[in-house]
Amino acid sequence: MSTSATPALEIKNVSLSLRGVKAISDLSFQVEKQEICALIGPNGAGKSSLLNIINGVYIPDGGEIVFEGERFQRMQPIEAARRGIGRGFQNNALFSGMSVIDNVIAGLSRHSHVTLVEEMFRLPRALREERDFRERAGAVLHLFDLDKHARTPVGTLPYGVQKKVEMARAVVGEPKLLLLDEPLAGMNAGEKKEIAAVIQRLNAELKLTIVLIEHDVGIVLKLAHHVVVLDYGRKLADGPPETIRDNPDVIAAYIGSEHAVAA
């Protein structure tokens, strides 16, 4: 297959300044199709900023993003979503006034084809789409074991559950590339295990390419196929987890920082 040579995502010489401070400098790396790529590094290393560049929230000062062989200097967020880049946020960015299932269905917007008038008069096409969306959202809720919360207002749920709802919302639109910002943060050990298993399933069964940021290095080393270490906006190391573990630069960056290397 000729396309298998094309990486899912290429970051080429990307730089970003936020309010005059250099957040990312001249960063390049590749994410292969169907791999789980973990971004690690201390706080302020530029990990979340990089995700924001990939889905168009931030405009890089320089460099380009190549997604599925197409180059972009900048992409509108809606354009990124249409091309199949899904995103989970670090601090839950759920729609607090809506129920769990409505939050998830909102993630299907890019697949909606009915017009406003069809929706107003409940014409057959609109009803069919609504039924289809509910089924798809229901299936994803089931995957995350959220069935019993479907009708609950999302703001009333505990943090760990909200985190799962956010992932469900990102996944429901069937993205090709999923960006997850600390999907395991704030969860207890049991929940972490559960979510890690779901991430593995998404990757294995749905053939999803996943880029995730995670501080729990123990889990990262088990989960990821590829680890990129950032520090002060620069790439410190890039390779399979086994080589990262023993990299002296990485160890140096983590010693003295607030994040201990967890077992």
Binding site: N55, G56, V57, Q76, P77, I78, A80, A81, R82, G86, R87, F89, A93, L94, F95, S96, G97, M98, D102, I105, A106, G107, L108, S109, R110, S112, V114, L116, E119, M120, F121, R122, A126, E129, E130, F133, R169, A170, G173
Partner: peptide, 26 residues
């Protein structure tokens, strides 16, 4: 009918968090 359809969900998504709404494809 409208507020219970995708258009209504899009509206509420924008109201609750417009950046996230754009990123997820609203």
């Amino acid at each position: 009918n409208l507020i219970r359809s995708q258009t209504g969900r899009n509206w509420m998504a924008i109201r609750d968090m417009d950046t996230a709404a754009a990123v997820i494809g609203v």
